[in-house]
């Protein structure tokens, strides 16, 4: 997936995941459905106004349809910080391409230039530009200096699941712990942590296989005494290792 990397003047780098054209198309479809729904609801009330004047009712319908279809994107993105209903559902968000605060004028322009993106029909021009552009920007985004990002699900890691505070027999061997910390590659440690965090997402057979493969990697780094690892399932072996690597008061921050 494409990412937009922004480096702050403080030297910190953060990345934003860019939304794919297909996801954006789906969000657009939801938004169009919303606009149609709102206009249909409005159409239900028109006969009431039509009792007073059918001419007035028609005028209200034409103006409302136009206003809703133009202002839906502008108002939603302004009030919901770069999101319409479709974008909210699919966790997309319009943001400034330089990571700055999204301005009202940017929202207006990206929505108005949609008129050109639609040409010659079915968003053909905008869609093609999206596919060709490295930042997945349509013409409106390009002119307004915006990008559409895929929001991450934000939650802090559930460490309790990994580290339940049980007795860890490996801690009886501080010299082996030191050797393990010294030799373990960061990527392998992360792999073990992630495997445990996602334990419940694995198929039981696959889980056994994955834990076995990762534990085997750790066993090549350090050999704990036979009496400590005998009859110890691979999953528990990994829990002990992760406990040592990630939860140590003396770990370097």
């Amino acid at each position: 997936m494409n990412t937009l990397r922004i480096r702050t003047p403080e030297g910190v780098q953060f990345s934003l995941m860019l939304a794919s054209p297909v996801t954006r198309g789906l969000a657009l479809a939801i938004d169009l459905a919303c606009i149609s729904l709102v206009v249909s609801v409005l159409g239900v009330f028109l006969p009431i106004i039509g009792v007073i004047s059918s001419d007035l009712a028609n005028a209200i319908y034409v103006l409302s349809y136009f206003f809703i279809s133009i202002s839906y994107g502008i108002l939603c993105e302004w009030l919901w910080h770069g999101q319409t209903l479709g974008k909210k559902i699919l966790r997309l968000q319009v943001v400034d391409a330089q990571g700055l605060k999204l301005q009202f004028s940017q929202i207006v322009m990206r929505n108005l230039i949609r008129f050109v993106d639609c040409l010659p029909g079915f968003y053909l021009l905008g869609g093609m530009v999206c596919f060709l552009n490295g930042r997945v920007q349509r013409l409106g985004d390009f002119a307004a200096g915006t990008v559409v990002i895929q929001q991450s699900q934000l939650f802090q890691p559930n460490l309790d699941q990994v580290l339940p505070g049980k007795f860890n027999s490996f801690r009886k061997h501080p010299h082996l712990i030191a050797r393990l910390r010294q030799s373990v590659p960061t990527a392998l440690a992360d792999l073990a942590l992630q495997a445990l965090l996602r334990r419940d997402q694995f198929d039981p057979a696959a889980r056994v296989e994955i834990f076995s493969a990762i534990a085997a990697q750790f066993r090549t780094l350090v050999e704990f005494p036979e009496n400590e690892v005998r009859d110890l399932p691979d999953e528990q072996y990994l829990r002990n290792v992760v406990d040592i690597l990630f939860c140590n008061d003396k770990a370097v921050l």
């Binding site: 953060f14 700055l100 999204l102 991450s152 934000l154 890691p157």
Partner: peptide, 15 residues
């Protein structure tokens, strides 16, 4: 997850 969470905070504050 934690990195994304912090990235999100930094990005918003940066803006």
């Amino acid at each position: 997850n934690l990195r994304r969470y912090l990235e999100s905070l930094v990005a918003r504050a940066y803006g």
